[in-house]
């Protein structure tokens, strides 16, 4: 009977440690991206849904960030892949996805993405082709204060003329949304001043 008690206490300790480790490692991982990651800006459109545990958030539709051409060196790979790497390129004040590759790039300006499908397009009489890769980014939401999220959606509805950008921090292929900005102002601040 004593060993059952000892086992129960050991399990108790292991479980506590595992739970704290998971939470702690997540905090360390994302704080590292926030402090050391490079900044990229994406055009986005917000929608306002609700999560009973994490609160109200705006769902983000990333403009021109669900497809990109496949890198030339990966053209003839027939293997089915789930994970790919989107190469990011800064153009003026916005970031575009230049291409997608199946190999982990050595530079830092890439983001791990989940692949959904590929499509080969044939062009011209020489049948030059280009493979387009469809994918989804690893983030799609931005949590906001309960009273601000619906206002954000109202204010930024398509056609309102306000351009919203997602400020991303990217490090070693992992990225998180640092903030949503209108010009140089944080979205929350922008809504409060309207």
């Amino acid at each position: 009977m004593k060993w059952i008690k000892q086992l129960s206490w050991s399990l108790f300790g292991i479980l506590c440690l595992a739970q704290v480790s998971v939470i702690g490692l997540q905090i360390v991982k994302y704080e590292r991206i926030l402090t050391q990651g490079e900044i990229f800006l994406f055009d986005v459109l917000p929608l306002d849904p609700y999560d009973p545990f994490r609160g109200r958030y705006v769902t983000l539709r990333f403009k021109d960030a669900n497809k990109a051409p496949l890198a030339k060196e990966d053209e003839f790979m027939e293997e089915q892949r789930i994970k790919g790497y989107a190469l990011l390129e800064k153009q003026e004040d916005v970031t575009v996805i230049k291409e997608v590759t199946f190999h982990k790039p050595k530079r830092n300006n890439f983001l791990e993405v989940t692949l959904s499908s590929t499509d080969t397009l044939y062009r011209g009489i020489n049948e030059k082709h280009e493979t387009m890769v469809y994918f989804s980014l690893p983030f799609d939401r931005f949590y906001m204060r309960e009273d601000l999220a619906p206002k954000a959606e109202l204010l930024l509805r398509a056609g309102s003329g306000v351009a919203l950008k997602a400020k991303l921090r990217v490090l070693e292929g992992k990225g998180i949304i640092e903030d949503l900005v209108v010009g140089d102002v944080s979205l929350s601040q922008f809504i409060l001043t309207q």
């Binding site: 939470i23 545990f53 994490r54 609160g55 983030f139 799609d140 949590y143 998180i176 949304i177």
Partner: peptide, 27 residues
Amino acid sequence: GASLAIIGQTYHLGGTLSDFLGGWLLL
């Protein structure tokens, strides 16, 4: 669940509500 929810909202993590519940269950 509360801890996971705070992490999720602080870092604006993607994934559905079911993913969140799955993580909670596992932990």
